[in-house]
Design a protein around this nucleic acid. Structure first.
Lengths: 253, 253
DNA sequence: CAAATTTTTTAGGCTATCCTAAACTTTTAA
DNA sequence: TTAAAAGTTTAGGATAGCCTAAAAAATTTG
């Protein structure tokens, strides 16, 4: 009998499990670990990612903490996450790759639904959420080609490239962090809540739109969009990311 | 306490279950009952449909007969099939509707992949098989519109309309049933076997292609396609449906 | 028409994913 | 620095869908 040292055994395990197709639930967990671990921004490097708590995952997955624990143990066995009780979870290299693949599917599908099929940018999330697990690599390739290999989806989120790299993040600010009179362009609408999306769409606050902060008041932020003035509640002003006039700029919308 | 008569209770049950979303497996079973029950052709009327045996379903679903029995009992409880032990299974009105919806999804997706994304007509089946269960009604509507509400998919199979009606079938013959010298157009390639599809595609035998039967020999049928002559094995000559010159004709390719 | 064959059902298991309630750690804050 | 709060795990179940082996029923055939 051949006896492998621990490191070799781990490698053998990872090889094996890389072939096993993951369940939809497993892919969703990995995606959420990625998103939560990078605080919603620039998830380029695996190293400067945060450990994610069971509770946060439970909230995102709409599931009880106990269920999360079970799944994390399984994902750890598969070599996709590093999991330590009470200390949260991180993606491994392998898990990071899977998460980026799922994210690429999701955001490419959103872009395709919007640009090829005429979905409103606020409608695409739910449909992409279902489809992301069920398209082939061929499908991914063809829609990416059709779109001309876009770098961002209709919400302004970066799309991992075919080699799973993320485009460089450009410095943006939350609308809630702007000072009175500052002026800029909506770069990203960072919510998946359907009601919020509908409202933003209704107000014309989509990526690319020009917006000016009038002032912050107790209830939220007063803004000007075109000729209209609105009061955005704090929660919404927190998820609207603005590219300020004068900041370094990369065209991606 | 209110007591319902049997008929009313059945209705109540069907109403209830119409809301319950069906699993992928359940939808597949219903689709196969439809396809097997209408002998591969014209499944317009539910009435002149055949009872389908457990064994046939097991073969199609790649599953053991015992598993089929279990599923049929469940579908019968849901009011989607009429099931009687040893006497096979038929769709109910409700089950027929579901099966046609799934079939519409499948065939619309095939047409869309072919026409919008440039898939080869022989490649679309596998992808459609996965996607058919995961698209929304909105997606269905949009691709149907993009395609201009097509009546047939790239294999020549009829697509149920938005109201779940099937276009009238035109009289075709299997290539294996043609007489020497007869000449016609490929109307339908009725196989889902990937190797067969690849071969047909390689020979140019796709819906719309002109073909002449030279003669039947022991090994199969000798045909002429353009300037080339081929020998098609019997199994393939059985699944190629030909529209003969002179037969009544409806343009749908 | 009864024996052989085919078909169907029953019974008992397996895996994946989720749940709740209760027990147990760790962290936080007075 | 210890007690309350927050976070995590254990234990025990549920459902869905598949499996096998063996029993039972129907059909076919000599």
């Amino acid at each position: 009998m051949v006896c492998l040292n621990p490191a070799t055994r781990l490698n053998a395990m990872n090889k094996l499990t890389a072939r096993t197709p993951l369940s939809e639930a497993q892919e969703d967990y990995l995606k959420q670990v990625l998103l939560l671990g990078s605080g919603g921004e620039g998830m380029g490097k695996l190293e400067d990612t945060l450990a994610v708590s069971t509770q946060d995952l439970a909230d995102r997955m709409q599931v009880k903490p106990a269920s999360v624990t079970g799944m994390l143990k399984k994902l750890a066995e598969l070599g996709l996450v590093q999991y330590e009780a009470y200390r949260g979870v991180r993606l491994t290299e392998a898990g990071h790759k899977v998460a980026l693949e799922v994210l690429r599917h999701h955001r490419l599908i959103e872009a395709y639904l919007h640009q090829a099929l005429g979905y409103g940018w606020e409608e695409v999330h739910a449909e992409a959420e279902k489809l992301e697990h069920h398209i082939s690599e061929a499908f991914e390739r063809r829609i990416a080609e059709w779109l001309g290999h876009p770098s961002h989806d209709p919400h302004g989120d970066a799309i991992p490239s075919a080699t799973l790299e993320l485009p460089q993040t450009i410095p943006n600010r939350r609308l809630a962090a702007l000072r009175s009179g500052q002026y800029g362009m909506v770069a990203r609408v960072a919510t998946q809540d359907q009601d919020s999306l509908n409202l933003f769409a209704h107000l014309g606050l989509k990526p690319g739109a020009q917006v000016q902060l009038l002032e912050h008041v107790a209830e939220g932020s007063r803004v000007q969009v075109g000729k209209e003035r609105y009061l955005l509640p704090v929660s919404l002003a927190q998820v609207l990311w603005i590219h300020l006039e004068g900041d370094p700029y990369v065209d991606h919308i």
